[in-house]
Amino acid sequence: MINVEQLIFEYPNLRALDEVSFHIPQGSITALVGPNGAGKTTLLRCMAALEQPVSGEIRIDGIDVLEHPRECHRIIGYLSDFFGLYDRLTVRQCLHYVARAQGIADEHCEDAIARVSNGLYINDRLDVLAGTLSRGLRQRVAIAQAIIHSPRVVLLDEPASGLDPEARHELAELFLELQKQGMTLLVSSHILAELEAYSTDMLVLREGRIIEQVAIKTATHTQDFKLTLATPVDNLVALLQSIDTLTVLKTEHNQSALLQIQGNSQQQHETLKNLLAHNLPICEFAKITNNLQDAYLETMRQRP
């Protein structure tokens, strides 16, 4: 869906994006993460054809963004980190304007407004002036504006900043709903816990370079497990290695181990049976959730 090749963007005396290349599959929700100043906003702005890079190529749904920026504008929705609203207009007027500006015919605007306002739980605020809304509600109106024309790709720069936990949860649900509708989302955020709720992929950017692109929720059935024994077992490593269905990642003091088990739940059950058959004093056998924060920090540690 999105292909970026050798993208270079420079500010005076600073290369903000340095030969950035990646691919984002259709229907995914990709978390764009990285420290401050990594180039996340610049990358999103280049992809939205708001900034012109020095060289490189960006293709969104087959459209060459640098050659045909206006065509790209029609298929994307973009939420800037410093978004603004028309404070002197009501929420309905704001949404109506954006809907019309995005080419939706006047007679279909009300349907579009109803659809996005229901999705973002702002249908009771439609006749309120945008300038009087709280930070969280403004954020929701801005997101509604970005998706009112049902774009194929949605680029969101820090969409959850300023939202309360409940609103973040609703936002995560909305993103999953948009994904179900076939949209591809690229979301930049600092709040990794929030991204974890909906992201399928993670793109790590540091100093203008992509240092990692990983699939977080994959279809493969490899799963990490933590094994803890009530008492140490001398030949634990050898014993574990003798079991075919698992891989030993790490052991500690012959009493605990980090294991990787291939296959589905049935195979996991078989592995546990196998472990018990070896008379191991198991007191804990728990699935380890591979959280986004750990993955991110691991990436940062591995690539200083």
């Binding site: 939205a48 708001l50 504008h73 029609r74 994307i76 973009y78 800037s80 410093f82 978004f83 603004g84 609203l85 028309y86 404070d87 954006v98 500006a101 995005q102 080419g103 504006q145 024309h149």
Partner: peptide, 13 residues
């Protein structure tokens, strides 16, 4: 000044 210019630039107008 009110950060709405990007919305207009990205519109189909």
């Amino acid at each position: 000044r009110s950060h709405t210019w990007d919305t207009q630039r990205l519109s189909a107008l």
